[in-house]
């Protein structure tokens, strides 16, 4: 079987069994329990929560990210197996949101991690969240959700930005 065809089949298979990582990074995580449990029940889409990053496919950035969390999120993202996808919730990861002038939150997520799908709203309603899942499935089907390839390709740029946010290049905390 040729590589492209195999790719296509694996995409169809992975689209129907996306496991999301159970990591509540911000306040958007409060709309995840309704999505995960009986009222919206995302298992209808074949999605389920997964505790370990090694087995998860989707990383949900639920809202704002503080610098301290970003370090963990980057660790977690790098532990995940490819193909892996990132969904960002709400306003904060797009352009800072409510915390646009805060000293401790990173404002634009796409400078540190490749984002596949953005959901609007503060909080996004569960319907919005489900729309994002459906959109991600569509993108995977079409082979367009390629954030992880982008992360590999521009790894140096992403690493540089992450280090800048963590403060290494500001020259103030070399000791860390």
């Amino acid at each position: 079987m040729r590589y492209e065809e195999w790719n296509k089949i694996s995409r169809i298979a992975s689209r129907k069994s996306l496991w999301m990582l159970h990591f509540c990074t911000g306040c958007g995580a409060v709309e995840l329990p309704p999505v995960m449990t009986s009222r919206y029940d995302m298992e209808r889409f074949g999605m389920g929560p997964m505790a370990t990053p090694r087995q998860a496919d989707v990383l949900l950035i639920t809202g704002y990210l503080t610098v301290k969390t970003l370090k963990r999120v980057v660790n977690v993202y790098e532990q995940m197996q490819s193909p892996k996808y990132v969904i960002s919730f709400g306003s904060c990861p797009i352009n800072g949101g409510m915390y646009w002038d805060s000293y401790n939150t990173v404002k634009r997520l796409d400078r540190y991690l490749p984002v596949d799908v953005y959901v609007g709203g503060c909080m996004p309603r569960p319907e919005g969240v489900m729309n994002a899942f459906l959109e991600l499935m569509k993108l995977i089907d079409e082979g367009k959700a390629r954030g992880w390839e982008k992360y590999q390709k521009y790894y140096e740029q992403y690493k540089r930005n992450q280090k800048m946010a963590f403060g290494f290049e500001r020259g103030k905390n070399e000791g860390d």
């Binding site: 646009w100 002038d101 000293y103 796409d110 800048m164």
Partner: peptide
């Protein structure tokens, strides 16, 4: 005397976009 807005602009806005 710590200006949060200025700090956010200096630190986070100076981070460049990913050039594709």
């Amino acid at each position: 005397d710590f200006d949060s807005k200025k700090f956010a602009e200096d630190v986070f806005d100076s981070i460049p976009e990913i050039k594709e």
